[in-house]
Design a protein around this nucleic acid. Structure first.
Length: 569
RNA sequence: CGGGCUAUGGCUCAGCUUGGUAGAGCGCCGCACUGGGGGUGCGGAGGUCGUAGGUUCAAAUCCUGCUAGCCCGACCA
């Protein structure tokens, strides 16, 4: 490629509304442009990087035995209705009708579709199978943000494993785990796996891959000592045991005029510290008013509540609903003796006695509450959100909470989809059995952005060689005959050697060319100018280190080839 | 969905408070000088000021509705 012909509109200033470094740099470098919220046009450079990322993913999934497919992105409603996800996916799914009025979905993921294909599997001898495609997904995100990090239209590699039993699934799960770690390493993204909520995917086990970044959207609990790490939607901590006094034989009502908050009750004469209070949250779970109780100083994690209850639509109750349900306003609510609404209690409250909580009369509280004696708990569950500094459940070290980008997610699905879509195989001793599935996703554009987040400096992007838009640039300092001839020869030699090289033959000043090459993150640069040519040399610059060395013009191509080869492993 | 902010040329922004000829830098086109880190000078093109309505002799500016975008939160793979 000759830069004079390349469409790469680089900008000196980032768009004012971009915040994330990857967003700013991908726009400034002319990799992409926004069409509207959550939809980006990939320009030639952006698409080139995107395809290189996809190719790495393809190589690694092929490497564990994956077979590449391409399934449609428009799906009939019936197939989603069959799995139940037409309803449970809610507003995330784009829906439309064809000219006959048939309901259609734009694919958010492809478990159902791959399962229909898999229904032609018939014998255990065909298993295991790993099938995948790299296909556009559409998700009607409530809030697209941060450039490519969260969008409404994106490419995802999603693979699916099919096994005759759980042991087979475990093996395929581990193969994917290892392949994903190789992918992230090749993309230059520091990564680690965490225990995660399976959310709307169903299934019984899942691991998310995370990379620490302020531009991310997930909070991850990490132990600095052992290897414990979990999404905050899933993780827990070991709380110090509380020594409660037994308290009175029955709860005692007492007046608390004007006390409306946990903090106020702490300071109130005759009140209680927050960790000796019950916090009663009135929630609507699929329109069922439910009391959710956590310790006064704890926070509810709504994803945990969703996982535990299976509820699809969770929201705090409106004021009127709360008053209608309990007869008091927030600030004086409690679950003592409440029998006409389900009560879900956080595990941290098990066995607690002599607690303080609202009495469902404005300005009145109870003290001396024994949780298991006085509250008709319907369900116990881990609902609280871990706070930084709490002890690790494995080793007791103070936990940290790290902001992360989710760069991959792998699920053990079990037989849910196989049963719905009749994916079963004959076995020698168990007859026909449903196939055990796994599902494994990795967003191409998000990983491109995550690599940009991890690999940039104040001059611009510093792509790993494998995904850089070009591996090397030959920068002509003058467009005179001598420089041009030397540059053209190097350009031809490098292309012949298989190096992805661009010749900067623009009639522009040196500063512009250097700045552009650094902004878009080309790993290696050969500078050809009269200063070097006098001595028969070119300058060899490495983007990542900033080092510049003189090399003989005769060996310059070989030097670049060696550097590229070494970097690609 | 709740809260906040924004919308003026390709990009970044000023102008709005106090209504009166639409501006700057970068980018773009032409010419000249220049030529190893976003160079200089001269000349030029390019804007229904998001949109619809209202107030007014007069609206980028004041008022109202709408739309779009961004940020925080909720939610989400």
């Amino acid at each position: 490629m000759r830069w004079s012909k390349l469409f790469t509109p680089t900008l000196r200033d980032a768009p004012g509304d971009a915040v994330a470094p990857s967003h700013k740099l991908l726009v400034r470098g002319g990799f992409m442009r926004q069409l509207h919220a959550g939809h980006y046009s990939m320009l030639p450079l952006g698409w080139k990087v995107h395809q290189k990322v996809a190719q790495i993913v393809r190589e690694e999934i092929d490497g564990i035995g994956g077979q590449e497919f391409l399934l449609p992105t428009m799906h009939p409603a019936e197939i989603w209705q069959a799995s139940g996800r037409w309803d449970t996916m809610g507003e995330i799914m784009f829906r439309l009708e064809d000219r006959r009025g048939n309901a259609t979905a734009l694919g958010i993921t492809h478990e159902e579709i791959f399962a229909t294909v898999a229904s032609e599997l018939s014998s255990y001898k065909q298993l295991p199978q790993i099938w995948y495609h790299i296909q556009t997904k559409f998700r009607d995100e409530a809030r697209p943000k941060s450039g490519l990090l969260r969008v409404r239209e994106f490419h995802m590699k999603d693979s699916y494993s099919f096994d005759v039993d759980e042991a087979g699934l475990d093996a395929n799960f581990d193969l994917h785990d290892a392949a994903y770690r190789r992918i992230f390493a090749r993309l230059g993204i520091p990564s680690f796996g965490v225990q995660a909520s399976s959310g709307a995917m169903g299934g019984n086990d899942s691991v998310e891959f995370m990379t620490p970044s302020d531009a991310g959207e997930d909070d991850v609990i990490r132990c600095p000592q052992c290897d414990y790490s979990a999404n905050i939607e899933k993780g827990t901590s070991a709380l110090p045991k509380m020594d409660d006094e037994p308290g009175p034989d029955a709860p005692e009502r007492f007046d608390t005029p004007g006390v409306r908050t946990i903090k106020a009750l702490e300071e109130f004469d005759g009140g209680a510290p927050a960790d000796r209070q019950l916090k009663t949250l009135v929630m609507s779970l699929d329109d069922v008013i439910t009391l959710v109780v956590v310790r006064g100083d704890h926070q509810l994690n709504t994803q945990k509540l969703a996982d535990v209850t299976g509820a699809i639509t969770i929201r705090p109750a409106e004021l009127e609903e709360t008053v209608a349900a309990l007869g008091a306003k927030p600030g004086s609510l409690g679950a003592v003796g409440v029998t006409d609404h389900p009560i879900i209690m956080d595990e941290a409250l098990r066995g607690r006695t002599n607690m303080t909580t609202g009495a469902n009369t404005d300005d009145v509280h109870y003290r001396g509450v024994s949780v298991e004696r006085d509250v008709p708990v319907g369900q116990w569950a881990d609902l609280r959100e871990v706070q930084a500094g709490e002890p690790c459940p494995n080793c007791g070290t103070a936990l940290t909470i790290v902001r992360c980008i989710e760069i991959g997610h792998i699920f053990k699905l079990g037989t849910k989809y196989a049963e719905v879509f009749g994916v079963k195989v004959s076995t020698p001793d168990a007859g026909d059995v449903p196939v055990v599935m796994g599902s494994y996703g990795i967003g191409i554009g998000r990983n491109m952005a995550a690599s940009a987040e991890a690999n940039h400096d104040d001059k611009g992007l510093v792509w790993p060689v494998e995904i850089a838009p070009y591996e090397a640039v030959i920068t002509l300092m003058r467009l005179d005959d001598e420089c041009t001839a030397a540059g053209e020869k190097l350009y031809d030699d490098l292309r012949a050697a298989g190096v992805d090289v661009i010749l900067d033959d623009r009639d522009a000043r040196a500063g512009v060319k250097f700045a552009d090459a650094e902004l878009i993150g080309i790993p290696f640069r050969l500078t050809i100018g009269p200063r070097g040519l006098k001595n028969g040399s070119a300058e060899f610059h490495t983007r990542a280190t900033g080092e510049t060395v003189d090399v003989s013009i005769d060996t310059a191509a070989a030097a670049v080839w060696e550097a590229v080869s070494a970097a690609k492993g």
